[in-house]
Simulated scan of single mutants.
Amino acid sequence: MIVLLMAFLVSFLATLGVIRWHRFHGHLSVDDDFSGVQKFHRHSVSRVGGVGVALGLVAAALVLWLDGRGIAREFALLLAAGVPAFAGGLAEDMTKRVGVGARLALTMGAAALGFWLLGAALTRVDVPLVDDLLRYGPVALAVTVVAVGGVANAINIIDGFNGLAGMVGVMILSALGYVAYVLGDHLLWNVCIASVGALLGFFLWNYPRGLIFLGDGGAYLVGFLIGEVSVLLVGRHPEVSAWFPMLLVVYPVFETVFSIYRRKVVRDTSPGLPDALHLHTLVFRRIVRWAGGREAEALVRRNSATSPYLWLLCSASVIPAVLFWRHTYVLMGFTLGFAVLYVWLYRRIVRFRTPGVLRRG
């Protein structure tokens, strides 16, 4: 528990420092562009919340090393492997000039480092024929880097409202940590609780007031850790269904896949072109209807009121994943069910037939 507490405390204080000393770095780190289709704030806000999360994880690694834990080296190697993913995102936060392709390539490079340093390889997906192909090292490496890079990019895509990506990350990592604890995997258990602690230290400053944003650096780091822990958990424990982590991450991943389909097939535009048609954006615009007070304050309240709806949606995959983490066919069914639920909700919201239970006055 000391790992979780130290990660939380360092992240909390470091994030406070970033906010407090914003005048020293604000010319580089703040998001003061309010004109974009995905902008839902009206004050300059720092985008480098990932720095606090990263420092919290480093503090956890130091605790493990000072305590003489045998897992300290592997923990440190995992963090080292994640440096390219974090650095690419942080560079975008500071310069606004690092494209999504470069960030994705760096994250895939981080996954390749994890493959080399820790043997983190996706060797099965519990699908016949596909598993046969994954027995070949080059195929396993290629699938691993694509999968980890895709999960990291998916976490970044849902990072659109106060508390959304942060709490989704907490939920997913808590579920992974629970199963790792049940299986006695001390490395992965400690990685998960340290990540949860670091995220919560940031979360208290991000939600509900939006005093700081997670940023691309934080989103890619969290996504990388989720992807790597998932790969390692399935690889180290044959009793864990490969569909357990797949169901855990189905919300951000399906959001990404659906966005690509919507932009490329339906609208015939570039998949990388930002738009205001993500599910979380539609929830903000068509379900959450808080008003009153000054415009900027009302916008902050509506921004923060959006995330709980998506937390609830995410729980629809996380809860069954935790309950049935050994049972492949049950997990497959829930994954398909979630996809159907997502599309149904999306269509209802787009057509202004929001389910009554979700409406707010």
Rank of each mutant, 00 (worst) to 15 (best):
F75P: 14
F75D: 15
A76G: 15
A76N: 14
L77D: 13
L77I: 09
L77N: 12
L78F: 15
L78Y: 12
L79K: 14
L79V: 13
L79N: 13
A80S: 14
A80R: 13
A80G: 15
A81I: 12
G82R: 13
G82M: 10
P84W: 11
P84A: 12
A85R: 09
A85P: 00
F86A: 13
F86P: 00
F86H: 08
A87C: 13
A87N: 12
G88F: 08
G88P: 13
G88R: 11
G89R: 12
G89C: 09
G89Q: 13
L90T: 10
L90K: 05
A91Q: 06
E92W: 11
D93C: 10
D93Y: 11
M94G: 01
M94Q: 07
T95M: 07
K96R: 15
K96T: 01
K96V: 00
V98R: 15
V98F: 08
V98D: 12
V98Q: 14
V98W: 10
V98S: 13
G99D: 14
G99F: 06
G99H: 05
G101F: 13
G101D: 11
A102E: 10
A102T: 14
A102C: 08
A102M: 09
A102Y: 07
A102Q: 07
R103G: 00
R103H: 04
R103T: 01
R103F: 01
L104K: 01
L104P: 02
L104I: 06
L104D: 01
A105C: 06
A105N: 03
T107L: 05
M108K: 09
M108A: 12
M108G: 14
G109A: 06
G109I: 09
G109E: 07
G109M: 02
G109K: 05
A110F: 04
A110G: 09
A111V: 05
A112L: 15
A112H: 07
A112E: 13
A112N: 05
L113C: 14
L113V: 06
L113G: 09
G114R: 02
G114Q: 05
F115I: 05
F115L: 07
F115Q: 07
F115A: 10
W116A: 07
W116R: 05
L117E: 04
L117T: 00
L117P: 03
L117V: 00
L118S: 03
L118K: 03
L118C: 05
G119N: 06
A120M: 07
A120R: 03
A120Y: 02
A120I: 12
A121H: 11
A121G: 12
L122A: 01
L122T: 04
L122K: 01
L122C: 00
L122I: 01
L122G: 04
T123E: 08
R124Q: 00
R124F: 00
V125W: 00
V127E: 03
P128H: 01
P128G: 05
P128D: 10
P128S: 05
P128L: 04
L129F: 15
V130D: 06
V130T: 13
V130R: 02
D131L: 00
D131P: 02
D132N: 10
D132K: 07
L133H: 04
L133E: 03
L134Q: 03
L134K: 04
L134H: 03
L134D: 04
R135K: 15
R135H: 11
R135A: 09
P138S: 04
